[in-house]
Amino acid sequence: GAPPNHSFLSAAVDHPWERATTPTKVPYYINHQTETTHWDHPKMTELMNSLSELNEVRFSAYRTALKLRTVQKRMCLDLVTVNRAIDAFDSHGLRAQNDKVLDVTDMISVLKTIYDQLANENPSLVTVPLCLDLAVNWLLNVYDSQRTGQIRVLSFKVGIVLLCKGHLEQKYRYLFRLMADPSRLVDQRKLGLLLHDCIQIPRQLGEVASFGGSNIEPSVRSCFEQAGNSTTTIEAVQFLSWLEREPQSMVWLPVLHRVAASEA
């Protein structure tokens, strides 16, 4: 059928800015005053600049969590429950499609399902064109900095669910289910793919060094060593008990949850 009409997203910016898209449907933003073009929405640039004031915070996990909390709230992902996100993924046929590639049009369709529902319930809090455009902008920054206009389904799901509202263990269990085979087991390669997508989030904030760097192999090994079996796969319970010890590569997530809880 005809491609979905995403012209409503032109409302995501005001004059002198204009929203445009490349031939591969990647959004970019034109400033007619400065006669310049940018991959980042002006509000994304403002958001990223605002995070630098948090650089005074000494403890890296806490500093990263505060930054992520700001990003999360700016996109209203703090109002999106994990279940709502999963329902949207499923309703768009993304279940068990980790390696499938989504283009920007696909991402917008899924995010629109999420944000339209959210806006109905929180009309005063959620501006759909802006929130949606910032979410696409964030996901592209994290997983498609080269702006090819494509992201794998796994990255799309991980990038959204990690910043959603929900219990930590609920997120962990969902992440494991994403990778598990029919007998609910995950091997080192799969765990590596998952942790690689997770670490991209603090990496996007320039904070990856504090979490062991971009190489997640040591983290994969530590999980399997803790599982204590020489076999090549782990079960959910082993994955959870490893995460309960807040391994360096993932510690920013439980701290983010503590930051959110402390606001309640």
């Binding site: 204009e18 445009a20 490349t22 970019y28 933003y29 034109i30 007619h32 006669e35 310049t36 073009t37 940018h38 991959w39 980042d40 990223m48 600049n49 995070l51 630098s52 650089n55 930054k67 920054n141 900095s145 080269q146 702006r147 990496r203 996007q204 904030l205 320039g206």
Partner: peptide, 17 residues
């Protein structure tokens, strides 16, 4: 020290309306 978006590829150039 938020890392600037590593834009290895630049967005399309400005074209006056």
């Amino acid at each position: 020290r938020p890392k600037p978006t590593p834009t290895y590829r630049m967005p399309p150039p400005y074209v006056p309306p």
